[in-house]
Structures are given as C-alpha cells and as structure tokens.
Amino acid sequence: MSQGDILQSMKEGSEKAQAVVAPATTLEEAIAYAVNLTVQEGGTTMAAPGMDDAARKALSAACGEKGITLLDSPLRAQMTKIHTAFTWADRGIADTGTLVLNSDSEEFRIATMLSETHVAVLPVDNIVPSMDALEGYMTEHFKKGPGYIAFVTGPSRTADIERILTIGVHGPKRLHILFLDGGEK
C-alpha cells in the first residue's frame, strides 16, 4: 500500500465513523484549527495534556487571543469544565479509521474522555495499514509494566434506543483528526 492509499483509507474509515478529517502542515496550523473550532462551538476552555513546552506556549498564546482558557494540571479538579481536548495521536489504523492513543497518563485520559470535542493531531508517518502492524507496538508497550492504550474510532455513540445511531453518550461528541504532514513531532 502506498502512503497515498493509506491516507485515503484512514480518511474514509474515520469519516465513515463520523469523525472530521482535515490536513495540517505544521503544529501551529493544528493549534489554530483547534482554537477556531472551540470558538465556533462556543467553547471557552481547552485541555492539552502531552504537549511539550514549546507547543504549550504557542497554544497558550493562541487561546489567549480568542479568550479561551487553557486548563492547567490537574484536570481531575476541572473534570466538568473541559470543552476541547487537544492531543497527539500515537498511531493511526487506516482500514478502520482508528486513532491509537497512548493513554498511560491520567491527565490524557481525563481530557480525551470528558471533553465535548476532541481534536487529535496524527502525524501521517504514524499511520499503519491495519491493526496487525501494531502487534509489536502493543506487546512492547505492555512489557514496560502498567499501561493504558485506547483505540478510538469516531466519536462516542450508542444505538441503545430503538437502534437509532446517536452520537455523543459518555465520551466526546465530536472527533476531529488533523493529518499532520511535515514530519514534525
């Protein structure tokens, strides 16, 4: 499979699962996307666990400009306040449109589970054709000791009432995936 095919498959799989896919050439562009989206949705807060200092600084500036509060750690004290979670995705699984999130950090879990909108930045080089390619990744991860990995395919959903597909039960109601092409991380 060529990288073009993998990207196309990832995009189709994600969209089929009601995720929104958009390109980003730099992390700054991704930050701008997340901030604008939050504003559009009328959100006023953002959590961004797992971003390094430089990214956090850029994020803080972008949020400040639009009147959005970038929430500080610990998020456990602010669990009901998170509008947008802005995070990296560790891997992508193309054939199902799935994000693989290294969720060892509790901050990361709280942000990605309790937010209304999750914006995930996925470096395109980290997308694999199918989950078979991740056997080694998973096994290695769990060799280290305790660990928590999440496969996320689209936003939270249910069909428990009359089998009617409804988005956004207990997890994020919206999932945006930004394909980061530029080898940056």
Binding site: A17, G147, I149, A150, S156, A159
Partner: peptide, 29 residues
C-alpha cells in the same frame, strides 16, 4: 477477535472504543 467481533455484532468495522488496560495505572485519588 477484535477484527470479527464488532463486524459480526453490529456491522461496525470497529467500535468507537477499544480499551487495553494493564496493571495499576496513574490514578490521583
């Protein structure tokens, strides 16, 4: 199992979430 379970159960390629947990992870309280 994961490749067949959601497809056979509800016709989904994969469920929204698959959660893999090992051991005593971070938990502030």
């Amino acid at each position: 199992i994961l490749k067949i379970l959601p497809r056979n159960a509800t016709g989904q390629a994969l469920t929204s979430y698959v959660t893999w947990i090992k051991g005593t992870n971070e938990c502030a309280p």
